[in-house]
Design a protein around this nucleic acid. Structure first.
Lengths: 340, 340
DNA sequence: TATTTTAGAGTTATCGGTAACATTTTATAA
DNA sequence: TTATAAAATGTTACCGATAACTCTAAAATA
């Protein structure tokens, strides 16, 4: 491996002079600058970021932790985060917690040991609290995405889950639906709670009864319990005329289960959900959704993080920023108009 | 920041003893081990990976470079790579070249300066050659995914593009199609070349003429030229009865364009493509595809990489491994049976 | 001409660890 | 009891860079 010392020796200068040439700092005569650069090229020098980070006490690397890399919401978000990071000269280390608090913990560990300059996180849920406390304790700046964690104050980018859910229900009601079911993520996730709240609120506003048997709670993630979901569907009697899903992954599972029961959508049962489907939804837009501005989540979140890193304020006196992005209701053809 | 020296001081031992406790190396009396551990806990010590990497000359970080993070093929692949990396105690740094050789170059730079232990790469295309030469020159072990690069010998995981394309065409022919068009990625990408080759081969085998006007070359990536594609479609006269797309992203664009022209799929025109659509394809299986084993690409590729890192052989005498994964033809309902 | 600046370099210490060798204890054998 | 081996711990150097300070020679000023 070529080091600045190799270059220094060959160019007959000190290592410091080489460092100055590399970083364009201090005063260097044009003659030596050229001489050193020539040797650098000849030897194919590549700076060692580790060594540099060690002495500079910063890595120029940020960490992005998402909860489901197969979910288009998060990949689109990732793309936004990446763009913002690149634009500011940061690199991105990344991880995928699969909605698991345990896996998340491993990544928190990586964040700490790797000494990244900051982290952008979609927390697994309320139990992520100690993880975030850890980051705070060690002075790692972080920004949350999509989910609040009670007891943690920080910059955050959220979707308006309550309003989105309300609008989905309102739409269903407008189409004549009165018996509406909800399948949702874990109540330990703030966005799931708000979606439930929005659901309840809209039901109430329309003088519709709220029946717990028509609400099923599972996981937003890839490891959800399909059997339990199937039983829930079978148990609802009378069956709902419409199901609202708390996110896109759950919608896929629900739709598969419904079809397996021989139900057609929307002829026999209507379905709507939170979050869109990335690439594919452009191709064959089928399901009516409350689409979130995924790219903006990542882009703005990253921007907040980078701003925060630049400031390096005392967390106690900080005014935290909260960005709330409204979802967009996209009506497609998964809902049947009921004539009551 | 707490260092081993802080711990050493507080525990009344040398820094080396602390290091030994952390790494479980050397001989340590149970008494001091406990004493040191206690102080570590009290002070909330977290090892500095930078410092460690500097002296150990290894980072336990690998790099994954994909070409399109919005494409489900790559996200599924990423998931596989991540699982394999985690299983072996490696962390993953990752980047997204957007099919751009230039962006790829920036990430190659990151790979070099960050001193990662190895890289798993989906190259942007043949022009990636110098980038890979750079890695080789600097002794960075790497494994290619999905695309070969002429002049570069290395471990690689490929799909059987030629055969997949052949089978898609065969299927179309079986369904009575004779005028088949192909929209494909850049000829500077090996997999695109092979898909064209498979296409031509199948046409020939079925005594169908190959007409260049029915083949359109663009980019696999997010920055493809939609206008050019539109003109191509309009120019084909007579119009094809079926279009085969070189990948999923192109298929989406094609389908949108066809629909914009008022054409229904499959009633007015049939479409098939390479690669499946992840999550969504489970929900609303519409388009007939040659689905690749995306997860396996990542998982096996990562495995090859890690094996290679363990060996540290001389590249000259190396026998390179090549894994070829066959795609699966999944028939859905985007193809109309023509009765000739 | 003598004195002060300043441009252009070099020296040394340090970031936070670990390897290799050195030293001190403690345990075991003679 | 003493010699010797083994166990436990300490010292020093180094990984590859940069900050802060120092030094030297030429240029600017008095």
């Amino acid at each position: 491996m070529v080091t600045i010392y190799d270059i220094a020796a060959k160019a007959n200068v000190s290592a410091m002079t080489v460092s100055r040439v590399i970083n364009n700092t201090g005063k260097i005569s044009e003659k030596t600058r050229i001489k050193v650069k020539k040797v650098m090229d000849e030897l194919g020098y590549v700076p060692n970021q580790m060594a540099r980070s060690l002495v500079l006490q910063q890595t120029r690397i940020l960490f992005l932790l998402i909860t489901d890399i197969m979910n288009p919401f998060y990949t689109t978000l990732t793309r936004g985060a990446e763009d913002a990071a690149r634009k500011n000269g940061y690199r991105l280390l990344f991880g995928n917690s699969d909605e698991s608090v345990e896996k998340e913990g491993e990544y928190i560990n990586t964040i700490l040991t790797t000494r990244v300059d900051g982290a952008l996180l979609a927390p697994a849920g309320d139990p992520s609290h100690p993880h975030l406390e850890q980051l705070r304790k060690h002075g790692v700046p972080f920004v949350l995405l999509d989910r609040e964690v009670p007891g943690i104050s920080c910059d955050i980018v959220l979707g308006d889950s309550r309003d989105g859910a309300r609008r989905l229900v309102e739409y269903l009601v407008e189409q004549g639906h009165r018996l509406i079911a909800l399948v949702n993520g874990s109540a330990s996730i703030s966005s799931a709670r708000l979606r439930l709240a929005g659901f309840q609120e809209a039901m109430k506003l329309n003088d519709l009864p709220f029946d717990e048997r028509y609400v099923h709670e599972t996981s937003f993630g890839p490891e959800l319990d399909v059997d339990a979901m199937e039983q829930w569907i079978a148990a609802m009697d009378p069956p709902p005329t419409a199901i609202m899903s708390g996110n896109n992954v759950l919608a896929v599972v629900i739709i598969k289960l419904l079809r397996a029961r021989g139900l057609r959508i929307p002829e026999d049962i209507s379905v709507v959900c939170f979050d869109d489907f990335g690439l594919y939804s452009e191709m064959d837009p089928f399901i009516t959704v409350a689409a979130q501005q995924a790219y903006q989540f990542g882009y703005l979140g990253m921007q907040l993080l980078i701003d925060r890193i630049g400031e390096r304020e005392v967390p106690d006196k900080t005014v935290w920023k909260k960005v709330v992005l409204p979802p967009e209701l996209i009506v497609r053809r998964s809902v049947k108009r009921l004539d009551v």
